[in-house]
Amino acid sequence: MDIKDIIKPENKVYSKSPVLLDNVMHYCPGCSHGTVHKLIAEVIEEMGIQEKTIGISPVGCSVFAYNYVDIDWQQAAHGRAPALATATKRLFPDKYVFTYQGDGDLASIGTAEIMHACNRGENIVVIFINNAIYGMTGGQMAPTTLMGMKTATSPNGRREDIHGKPLKITELIAQLEGTCYVTRQSVQSVASARKTKRAIRKAFENSALKKGTSFVEVVSSCNSGWKLSPVKANEWMVENMFPNYPLGDLKDI
């Protein structure tokens, strides 16, 4: 059979979601952000909630998330996305409101905001990208940087006596009574990406059911920051990140 006979509109089984804009993403090759953006867009498309969804983008690499997902966006100050989301959801209770935050944004400068939004049980979705590094500012140590991991501000590796140990923020979040769903996923493989998509969908559905805060961590790679090729970075993530940040549901009620 000729390729030309296969590539016909009626045979199309996968194409870009119309909720994704045509802009070429500014992310580095192989960056997990792009995959997670796509999954969010697909969930929004499948749930038919494009007109009712408001995203809050952080400071960090994903500050420009609004250039890629075709919904209304608010761009927050560093770490403050949960505060914006709190007000937005309370003032527009029928809309779907989600924050998209990295580990520096959520687990360092924005610790107070995320803790209290989750503790109040705001009916929002939090997408937390944990790649254990500050990507946009050039690869500095994050609260989630692993022990011994080399970054721009821990050039000889993270040391407990100087930097303390990695912050397992998602485990803390799961303790808060306002959260209804806390899960840790990844997107390096087909199976993991599909699981993450299901998790994102469940989180959005929880929001409509007013069950409290849904928190989806995506353990991600930052190949530029880690100074590895995209494929090697994903392998390193599986070997090193997953033992420290084990995948699966921490809470689902």
Partner: peptide
């Protein structure tokens, strides 16, 4: 085989898949 695995993991959503 048109399994869509490549498109699912593509961070830049630049793959369209066809299957018969």
């Amino acid at each position: 085989t048109g399994c869509t695995n490549c498109a699912t993991v593509c961070p830049d959503t630049c793959i369209t898949v066809y299957r018969v």
